[in-house]
């Protein structure tokens, strides 16, 4: 059933997000602590750090995976909340379509940025 598949992906994307967003948070939101402990610069948002990471293949691929998983998970959750508000069937289908369209558009934009910044590093001598 369609809804069963969508929900199964909601769970799987949650696990993917736990893994990759976990890494992202450990880098970004514990960066100052790592710096205070002596491992790492302590400034994960500085441009040299950001570009160093963005130009590594591992980060480019995991950013795109995280983007896809998070967009699906978040927009399915939003559509789920809106479909519990006693709306008409047409409106529910429209919301589903809008969420899918917005998700695709944001995914394309985000992936483009990730790939473009990665390729900036390739082009540097």
């Amino acid at each position: 059933m369609r809804e069963s598949r969508l929900w199964s992906w909601h769970i799987i994307s949650a696990v993917i997000i736990l893994a990759f967003l976990g890494i992202h948070m450990i880098i970004m939101h514990m960066g100052a602590i790592w710096g205070a402990l002596g491992t790492g610069s302590g400034h994960p948002v500085r441009s040299d750090e950001v570009f160093r990471r963005s130009q590594q293949l591992f980060f480019m691929i995991t950013y795109i995976l995280l983007l896809g998983a998070a967009l699906f998970h978040g927009l399915y959750g939003l559509r789920s909340m809106l479909c519990e508000l006693s709306l008409s069937r047409i409106l529910e289908k429209a919301i589903g379509g809008l969420c899918a369209a917005a998700g695709c558009a944001l995914f394309v934009y985000g992936s483009y940025v990730a790939v473009a910044v990665y390729r900036m590093g390739e082009m540097r001598p």
């Binding site: 939101h29 514990m30 960066g31 100052a32 602590i33 710096g35 205070a36 302590g42 400034h43």
Partner: peptide, 8 residues
């Protein structure tokens, strides 16, 4: 602690 306490 990371945002407000850790000395940068």
């Amino acid at each position: 602690a990371d945002l407000y306490l850790a000395i940068k």
